[in-house]
């Protein structure tokens, strides 16, 4: 079956990129020596592999899958190929939480203060969003509430930057917001994993509802889909994924937008099939982008979010032109 083949190839691609992410890096270890060091975990090389490269590669998989999956769910729910997971405001709010942790210096005292503050921001945002958009299942209300929350979070982030206690803190905030997988620990992995796992389970269960929504809200409801429940699932699942992803990596744009679009035709366009494929595709894309940040300018710390935006923006423009031409 074509779909199974696609999923299997994506799994292989993710596995290959995961291995590459483990074996490529700043230290001059050859691939074989790296692998041996990873296996034994002994010496400086073993430490580098297990404590630096392994969390980095794991987060690449987790965060990439989170962004790809939530992007596919958001596009399916809003029936719009230009929708992206940041639309509901949780990534902006998570970034705000992290920025406040940097601003107040809390993260210097306690390493996990930053991701925890980001998760708190995402949680508050999703609670506010559901309160603002009410129980009505309309997509438009949700988008507007999301835009309002995003701009509020953006303004408060700018305020934190404006009032930064020192130029170093300001620079710290700016660099964090560019998004990166560098220098993360297994603690970050442990923190993000439960949220990403729960969010993924919630979103993967919405496949049927999203498929039915292809025919419009009325037809979906007549097929027995509960629109309020579908909406709650998509919002909560996306918030968990995006909140956790932003908390551990900062803002990484365009993956959630571009990956579902790239895979849509290959899966036959059905949202339920696009969900797992986009999770795998997102993981592959983020791993590849993270490897690229190490290879393109090895001596400088090129930020992951900068790279994905550089590659993603022109792609986005092409997509808009394509959609304009098809008139859809």
């Amino acid at each position: 079956m074509k779909y199974r083949l696609l999923l299997s190839s994506l799994v292989l691609l993710v596995a290959a990129l995961f291995l590459a992410s483990l074996l490529l890096g700043a230290s001059d270890l050859g691939p074989r020596a790296s692998l041996a060091a990873f296996w034994s975990g002994e010496g400086a090389a073993g430490l580098v592999l297990r404590e630096i490269r392994l969390p980095r590669a794991l987060l690449g998989v987790l965060v990439g899958a989170a962004l790809g999956l939530s992007g596919a769910a958001m596009q399916g729910f809003l029936r719009n190929p230009l929708a992206e997971p940041g639309l509901i405001g949780t990534s902006g709010a998570a970034a705000l939480g992290a920025v406040i942790a940097i601003h107040t210096g809390a993260y210097a005292a306690f390493a996990l203060a930053l991701p925890l503050a980001a998760l708190l921001g995402a949680g508050l945002a999703v609670a506010l969003l559901l309160a603002l958009a009410g129980r009505e299942a309309r997509a438009l209300t949700l988008i507007l509430a999301g835009i309002a929350l995003s701009s509020l979070a953006g303004a408060l982030t700018a305020l934190a930057l404006n009032l930064a206690p020192s130029p170093y803190a300001a620079a710290e905030i700016v660099f964090w917001m560019m998004g990166s997988l560098a220098d993360r620990s297994m603690l970050h992995v442990a923190l993000a994993t439960p949220f990403i796992a729960i969010g993924a389970v919630v979103l993967l269960r919405q496949g049927r509802g999203l498929d039915a929504l292809t025919l419009g809200e009325d037809a979906a409801a007549s097929l027995g889909v509960s629109l309020p429940r579908l909406r709650l699932g998509v919002v909560v699942g996306t918030a968990a994924l995006v909140g956790a992803a932003t908390a551990v990596t900062g803002a990484v744009g365009f993956v959630g937008l571009v990956v579902p679009h790239l895979l849509r035709r290959a899966v036959g366009a059905a949202p339920s099939r696009l969900l797992p494929a986009s999770a795998l595709g997102g993981a592959a894309m983020l791993l590849a982008a993270d490897i690229a940040t190490r290879l393109v300018v090895p001596e400088r710390d090129l930020k992951l979010g900068v790279l994905t935006a550089l590659v993603g923006a022109p792609f986005f423009l092409r997509m808009i032109r394509q959609i304009g031409r098809e008139g859809a």
């Binding site: 292809t214 025919l215 849509r264 035709r265 036959g268 366009a269 059905a270």
Partner: peptide, 27 residues
């Protein structure tokens, strides 16, 4: 018990015809 064919003819994604028809089997 009842199928509903709304007036607005929405097909959001370019799914194959057979897959769109199969959506009727969801219940």
């Amino acid at each position: 018990a009842a199928a509903w064919l709304p007036q607005a003819r929405e097909i959001a994604w370019g799914m194959p015809v057979e897959a769109v028809v199969r959506l009727g089997r969801l219940p």
